[in-house]
Design a protein around this nucleic acid. Structure first.
Lengths: 355, 355
DNA sequence: CCGCTTAGTCGAAACGCTTCGACACCGCTG
DNA sequence: CAGCGGTGTCGAAGCGTTTCGACTAAGCGG
């Protein structure tokens, strides 16, 4: 491994000059620059990231902390990651993903305190999230995807669940549906304070009552079986339902399966809208699902851009004691994409008894 | 941020002593150790990863290079990642995931040359994979998931596709199926030299002819539509088929949809086996799919363990010119898990014309 | 009681880079 | 022609660790 010394010697300049060529911190004449560049090329020189980081006190590495649970990353999360990676790379940063499990809060603190990460994006934030507290304590610049309950001191980017639900409901109501059931995440997830689940619940109630309709919500486990059970529960609570709005991307296949099992057709008998879903997943179903497409890659890009702006910003105070560090707080709506799973309700739908 | 100097001063010892307490490189008396530990606790000291890395020439960071395409990480890949992360963490390493897109070979070289990664695991290896070459050139310790065509100088862990296909076919043949169609990845994927697709193709031909049966393979695009088209093609080529073996996790939902669309029931009319699939995905379908479950987390764990063994090994030469660095080469089979999508074929299946 | 190992500690030299202060040289202005 | 601001370059002092050689004080066999 060639070092800057080697390059400097070969180019017959001082080490600092080589450094200036690399970083552009000070003006260097074209002639010198060329000599140095030539030497670097000849030696196949690559700067040592550690040394650079130590001396400059910035690693140019951004961390994306993603909880990795067993059910994997959907296309939504993936879009998010790729958007973030692209944004980071074009800002001259590396993005590393760190799969942080649930339990290791101490691990998180260590990771953040070791000064290896210039900044951090935290995904899947809960309304009350200890990880946020821990990260804030370490003083590492932080942007959230999702929001905690109190967002006053935080930067975040999140989906505009309110508007998303409102649009979805409007779409169904516009088609003529009156009896719409919302299949949310599980009761346990709701109880744990998972923001999207809670916010969509409230938004659904608001949207439905706004249309003068009765909001029926079912909590479903994140599995196909959960979806089936949810649909059964839905028919029990609202036998005359004509439309299902589902937040639970995993349960939706169970919902569809159960619908078919009951001899009901989609969208003939029941319309289905999937929320916060990627086109890829929506296309998996038969018929392809009308869905609220999440702004995945935009979300990632914006989060990183906010972080970078903070890092590269002029007077970016790291530990401002009360001083006004600018916060970036932004909501992005999902876009309605109509596919084959929604249609006007049958005008005189034959009432089927719940089996 | 407290430094070692601060700790040393507070504990009234030298800096090197603090370092020895931390690393255990040299014996330290219990009394001194306690003083130092107390000082560290009091100052909330966290070693600076950069400085440590610079001085010791090892970052204790392992990279998991994963191509992130638009269709996201399945549960299989996720299991893989979590397995790897757990193994890394218990070996005292951090695991970072780097989403490397397709094009940036130069980027890859830079990443690997910057001495920020002690070792690298590369996922989704193609039979002819330039990334492998690039990484080998940088001299960074490397373990592959998957294999290139020539594996002589490489360490890898991979799925035993041969055995997996053999078992899947045996399961179907054991049930009485004679006419089995294999739905592989797309023709383009095959042409690009994607190992799993090629190896399973060959294994399928071998397994079927071994049973005295005629192997029919269809290439399907990675989408629901691709699955539908594939099924249509399958019926065109083998109208009397009673079983489908699918490698293409994405296409399988299209296959199921098309089957239903044709009025065929699973497993009554046609049995379906999904290969290299996670239980989570298998459960999404109705009925739940009989599948060959991939050894995801074991794969990740083993890859990392092999890498760590190489790094922590006694005389681990980084650039051995011809010397025998031990290679780790291992194949893991997928496990057959029978669910609801396979059954004996109808003895006298009513022949349906292709629509 | 003498040299020899061994446990325990220290000081200083790296590690490979950034960055600060200094300085030389240039062409200008007044 | 003194003085000045700008440009281009250098040397050296860090950045926060690890690690090496050296030193001291015991402990011990002969």
């Amino acid at each position: 491994m060639a070092t800057m010394h080697d390059v400097a010697r070969l180019a017959q300049v001082s080490v600092s000059t080589v450094s200036y060529v690399l970083t552009g911190t000070r003006p260097i004449s074209q002639a010198t620059r060329n000599k140095v560049l030539a030497a670097m090329a000849e030696l196949d020189y690559q700067p040592n990231a550690m040394a650079r980081g130590l001396a400059s006190r910035r690693s140019r590495i951004l961390g994306l902390l993603m909880p990795m649970d067993e059910r994997g990353l959907g296309a939504t999360e993936t879009a998010f990651v790729t958007g973030a990676a692209a944004a980071a790379s074009s800002a001259g940063y590396h993005l590393v993903l760190s799969p942080v499990g649930g339990g290791d809060l101490e691990d998180l603190r260590r990771l953040a305190s070791q000064r290896m990460l210039d900044g951090v994006v935290l995904m899947e934030v809960q309304l009350a999230d200890e990880r946020v507290t821990v990260l804030q304590e370490t003083g590492v610049p932080l942007v959230l995807i999702g929001r905690t309950a109190d967002t006053s001191t935080l930067s975040y980017v999140d989906i505009d669940f309110d508007q998303t639900v409102r649009e979805a409901v409007a779409h169904l109501v516009g088609l003529g549906h009156r009896r719409i059931v919302y299949v949310n995440h599980s009761a346990a997830t709701l109880a744990s304070g998972y923001g999207p689940a809670l916010r969509t619940r409230d938004a659904f109630v608001a949207a439905m009552t706004g249309h003068g309709l009765d909001p029926v919500m079912i909590a479903a486990e994140d599995s196909a079986a959960g979806g089936r059970a949810a649909l059964a529960a839905a028919f029990a609570q609202a036998p005359e339902l004509t439309a299902v709005l589902a937040m639970n991307e995993t349960a939706i296949f169970g919902i569809l399966g159960e619908l078919t099992g009951r001899g009901l057709s989609v969208p003939g008998d029941v319309s289905v809208v999937s929320m916060v879903t990627s086109p890829q997943v929506a296309e998996l179903a038969t018929p392809a699902l009308t869905a609220m497409t999440s702004p995945g890659s935009a979300l990632g890009r914006i989060a990183i851009e906010a972080l970078v702006r903070h890092l590269d910003g002029p007077a970016a105070e790291r530990h401002p004691d009360g001083s006004a560090v600018e916060r970036h707080q932004q909501l992005l709506p999902c876009a309605l994409e109509v596919r084959g799973s929604t249609a006007p309700p049958r005008s005189r739908r034959p009432v089927r008894a719940d089996q």
